[in-house]
Write a protein that binds this DNA or RNA. Structure first.
Lengths: 206, 206
DNA sequence: ATGATAAAGTGACATTTGTCATCTTTACAT
DNA sequence: ATGTAAAGATGACAAATGTCACTTTATCAT
């Protein structure tokens, strides 16, 4: 298995090279210190796997991943990073990286490389279990931003359950007219035109 | 690394035992042929990893996974199966299995075990890229089941975009009255009461 | 050619929805 | 205590929505 290692810190790349090659199962073809190196070296060597840090000067590991995968969709890229950042993880999943490993989990690196080499994808257990949240919480509705208060929010939620104004008024101990007024105000704030659009908006942003 | 192997076919378990132990890095503590064995043997040996088939007589690998994880939340269970079945995959992800490997991908098994042993989760690349769909398409709307035809479906989609009957009629070159009739029929078929509920239904099932 | 079936339209109707201007009540800050 | 907001209510109204019973038109198998 031939790999390329990219990391900001040359101490890290050389340490990794030593450790990984000691296993006897792989060869480090080259190493670099930023996204530009990653792209150049990938094109030059076409390694089995590119092992790269995310946070780096200039072009990040994620940007490099995107560029490389656009040109070589089968590229196997394993991301190496210091911490679990939801944004990074979402990006990594969307782009199609084959793995996301924490640096301090150094014992995981070689097994992860082996698994990726054999065609699998490797992510931390915490990541797998968090995927549903990660993907749902993408846009997220900022009620405060739209100046929606508690009461109005309650009305929105009930509309999003498909209730009529009358049913909502009963549930909230308000008169039907009041509910209508709330709805009218909500629609204006959100720049929508009817309750159906509101329900749709709610499901798209929640 | 100590593991237990479960598979319907004893030929498979013995072959796996031979192949895997040849690596010199792991020991097969025991093997069994169904979900009951899986549970019993897991409790008896508490292996580092339980490698189990899904389809088996009696208690399936997924049911065994659920039972074991309920009692031992930290159990590392790697599922082994013959094909990619969306339902199985969803279950596996929900339950918290540490991996899902295809049997014919025999070269992946050892690396996957190593990666799981080191604390990672291993899933096929196809699975990772399909996760968004898998999680969204969980219940899936069977239009045919509800006896919804092409035209009606189109109306549903436009309502789910928040359009009014008038706008829909313009888009579909129908009269507004006809659109109203379609809606009325759709609501009856789906046992809903208004267009907002229909939009919600659409987003929940698509 | 004709009868059956599906697709589309009409008109009438009761409800619901959304908008607006205008109260009443309550709270509460000064 | 007094003025000013906020929360809630009312009533009136136009427009949109949903239901129903029919009619028209087209299609197509026999």
């Amino acid at each position: 298995m031939n790999i390329i290692i990219i990391d900001d810190d040359e101490l890290v790349t050389s340490a990794l090279k030593t450790i990984l090659e000691a296993s006897g199962t792989l060869k480090v073809l080259a190493s670099g210190t930023d996204g530009t190196d990653a792209i150049k070296l990938y094109e030059k060597y076409r390694p089995d796997i590119l092992l790269t840090d995310i946070q780096m000067q200039g072009i990040s590991g994620l940007e490099a991943t995107e560029t490389i995968l656009k040109k070589y969709p089968d590229a196997k890229i394993l991301l190496l990073t210091t911490f679990l950042d939801d944004e990074y993880i979402i990006q990594a999943l969307r782009l199609g990286a084959k793995g996301y490993i924490l640096k301090h989990d150094y014992k995981s690196i070689l097994p992860a490389l082996e698994a990726v080499y054999s065609g699998q994808s490797v992510f931390g257990t915490e990541i797998i279990s968090k995927i549903p949240e990660l993907l749902n919480s993408a846009p997220k509705f900022d009620y405060a931003y739209y100046d929606i208060n508690e009461r109005e929010l309650k009305v929105i939620e009930l509309i999003a359950e498909g209730l009529s104004n009358k049913e909502i008024s009963a549930k909230l101990y308000l008169s039907e007219g009041t509910v209508r007024n709330y709805l009218s105000i909500i629609l204006e704030k959100l720049e929508l035109h009817n309750r159906t659009q509101l329900a749709i908006f709610y499901y798209k942003h929640k």
